[in-house]
Each structure stands twice: as structure tokens, then as C-alpha cells.
Amino acid sequence: MDLLIQTLINGLILGAGYALVAVGLTVIFGTLHIVNFAHGAFFALGAYATLLIERAGAPYLLAIPLAVLCVAAIGFALEATIVRRALYDQGEHGSIIVTFAISQAIVAAIILVVGPDPLPVPSPFGQTAVSVGGFFLSAQRIFIAAASVAVLAGFALWLRRSVKGQQILAVSQNARGALYSGINVPLIRSLSFLLGIAAAGLAGALMGPMISAFPTMGDANVIVAFTVVILGGLGSIGGAMLGALVIGLGNALFETYVSVSWTPALGWVLVILVLLLRPQGLMGRAQLDRH
């Protein structure tokens, strides 16, 4: 029983972290219809920015928002110079190549500027573990889960309540219809890209102390995020959150009670099952005719 409770806690906390990466990915896919292969690179940038800002003397909690701003600024520069010109309305094929190239360039830049060795990202929560009724909870993990839930709830509220948020929803449902409803679709796309990138940077800043900063640190996390996003339904924000919870709990239970070696396969098995039974994902909508 204790093992089950500890496993469920592990899974929930894990899921909250996955959700943050996955929501960024899905917001970008939903409004821009591009698969952002550079998501992992922006995740790494978030961790490195946090690390460098901390080295300059700022405390971790202040470094996080500053790091997110830095990543968003880099994202903005890339959006204005490359993504906007090369990708919008070009479909998913070009996006894979262009975002993959951006990802490689960012990783190479990190190696050039900071070096390849993994570096610790200091956090006041450090290795502290909180023991509640015999269950071990890492303080950093609790912080990641709490921050993810707070940010995601704020984001969901903003999407529902703000004009820009509503316009993002409109564009993700029907870009052409939104254009003729007088919505500035190019602006909404740029905004969505920035939000997605900022979410990736925030995830990197939060998870850096757990996994250390190294140039390819985003790869494994983004692979999980892809399964989460496909599971939840491409472009569906609620779906990404649900998918993250399913994968987080599923992985934790599977690792504890079945087999560790087969856990990464579990995500994909779930994805294949969902795609067979419900091709649009758990909460996705059936493919719109994009005409």
C-alpha cells in the first residue's frame, strides 16, 4: 500500500512536469501547424539561462522568470528572422527540417559558449527531501509540480478569459475563419510561438536542478512530450494536460510494478492504442479540412 501511494505521488509529480513541456509543444502545433523539433533546445536554453543568471548573482527564484524572458527573447529573434518567413502556411514538412536545424544550431552554440560537460543548476531546494508520513518527496519536485500547475492553470484561465487567449483558440480551430473574423492571425501565431517557447524555457529552468544542464538535455524530455501530445490530441491544450497525467502515472505504475526496461515503450503503446481507437487523440478534434 505504501509502495502504491509513493508510486502514485511520483506519477502525479512527474505528470505535472511533462505537462509543461507538452503544452508548449501543443500550443505551437495548434496555431501554427508546425512540429517544433527545436523544443528541446529551448528547454536546454531555459536551464542554461537560469544557471548563468544565478552565476551572475541572482537567486534561483528570481533567475527563473529572467531566464524565461531570455528564452522568449531568443525565440522572438528566431521567430521574426526564420520561422515567420520560412514556415507559416508551409505545412508540416518544411517545419521538421527548419526547426530541426534551429535545434542543432542552438545545441552547437551552447557547446561553443558554455562547453559540453553537464553543469549543476543550483536551487535552494537542492537535494532536500521532505518525508511526509514515511513518503519521500523531493522538495525540488514539489516545487516543479506546484509551479507547473500554477502556470498551467493561469494559462488556461488566460486562454478562456483574455481577448488574445480567445483569439489563440480561434486561430487554432480555424485560421482562415479567424482571418475573416478580423483576427490578426500572423500576430496570434507569433504570440503562440513565443508562449510555446517560453513554456519550454520555463520547464528547463524548473527541471535544470533535477537533471543538470547539458546541451542535449531536452531530447529525452521532448520525446516524452511528443507521446503526451499525440496521446492527448495534437493541438489540444486540455489533451496535453490529460496526456501528461496519463503518461506520468502510467510510467510510474509500470516502472514500479511491471518492468523498467519496457517503460519507454509503454508511452508509444498507449499512443498506438489511442490512434487506433480514437485517431484524433484523447481530447483532440477530428482533422479539419484545411482548405
Binding site: 481577448v163 480567445q166 483569439q167 483558440l169 480561434a170 480551430q173 480555424n174 482562415r176 475563419g177 479567424a178 475573416y180 473574423s181 478580423g182 483576427i183 478534434r285 479539419l288 479540412d289 482548405h291
Partner: peptide, 28 residues
């Protein structure tokens, strides 16, 4: 200038009233 599309071009996941609201933000 208004335009409708050959294939249905509403905001499928939103209610009828929300559909109208999306189109009104430009005037608010």
C-alpha cells in the same frame, strides 16, 4: 469585407455564441 468558405469554416469546438464573440473582438 466578409467571406465564407467552401468547406465549413466555423470554430468547431466553441458554442454558437462564442463563434460570434471571436468575430467581435476586433471591434471591442
Amino acid at each position: 469585407v466578409g467571406r465564407t468558405f467552401q468547406r465549413t469554416a466555423t470554430f468547431r469546438d466553441s458554442t454558437v455564441r462564442e463563434n460570434l464573440l471571436f468575430a467581435s473582438y476586433g471591434r471591442m
